[in-house]
């Protein structure tokens, strides 16, 4: 537990010190949002609800893939070797997942705020939509962290990560879009109960698998 905490602190400090990477992520998200804003010819008031929702999740997905891809690239491999001697593989992967979760959550909240401002507001149940964002960030971070670890061993890591992660994230995205659509329509909480439990179940499976499989990954 203490190991995980200090590893997360290390990552946060590193991120704040190398402001370049965090600025890149924020700018990536902002410019994509702006691109969508302009591409709809500024006529955002007659945007279809379904389009609005899907577009937001696709922007989030691409930002997540882009930002999580950095999680094993920031430091040199010699530094990684050093961490592996200090802490167990379980602690390292958990720290990475939690750190990525916090990062993605911050990024998605920022993106959500900007999206509401630029492309109009169609949400009627904010609490449920925010829950979808939290569950989505958790799911993205847990699957992307292990996949980024795999992709970082290849030569063309950003391309490989995109290919590896899209099909794996599809079931999650499918459920998230359904859940957030319910939130937009302002349906009762009990309607979305199935979706919430399924997303939570997928998240748990993925986290457990990352924990089990990471010890094999860091050896190479």
């Amino acid at each position: 537990m203490k190991e995980i905490k200090s590893l997360i602190w290390k990552d946060i400090k590193l991120e704040l010190r190398q402001q370049n990477t965090i600025n890149t992520m924020v700018l990536f998200m902002v410019s994509t949002l702006f691109l969508c804003y302009i591409s709809f010819m500024l006529r955002t008031d007659n945007l279809d609800k379904l389009t609005w929702n899907t577009l937001f999740w696709i922007i989030l997905l691409f930002s997540a893939v882009n930002s999580a891809g950095n999680s094993f690239r920031k430091e040199t491999s010699g530094r990684h070797l050093y961490y592996y001697q200090l802490a167990g593989p379980g602690a390292i992967i958990m720290a990475k997942i939690i750190f990525n979760f916090l990062l993605l959550l911050a990024l998605s909240l920022l993106g959500f705020g900007l999206y509401l401002a630029l492309l109009g507001n169609y949400v009627s149940d904010y609490r449920l939509y925010l829950l979808a964002l939290v569950l989505g960030s958790l799911g993205f971070s847990s699957s992307l962290t292990l996949l980024a670890g795999i992709a970082s061993k290849t030569d063309n890591s950003s391309g490989v990560l995109a290919v590896l992660s899209m099909p794996v994230l599809l079931p999650l995205i499918n459920m998230l879009i359904k859940l957030s659509k319910n939130a937009m329509d302002g349906l009762d909480f009990s309607v979305s109960y199935d979706e919430i439990m399924t997303i939570f179940g997928i998240d748990l499976i993925v986290i457990a698998l990352s924990y089990l499989l990471f010890p094999y990954l860091w050896k190479s």
Binding site: S143, L146, L147, I150, K153, L164, P167, V168, P171, L172, I202, I205, V206, L209, S210, L213, Y216, L217, S220
Partner: peptide
């Protein structure tokens, strides 16, 4: 690495 991906992908 491909064994890790195989297990992970199968589970999802």
């Amino acid at each position: 690495l491909s064994a890790i991906y195989n297990i992970f992908a199968f589970a999802s």
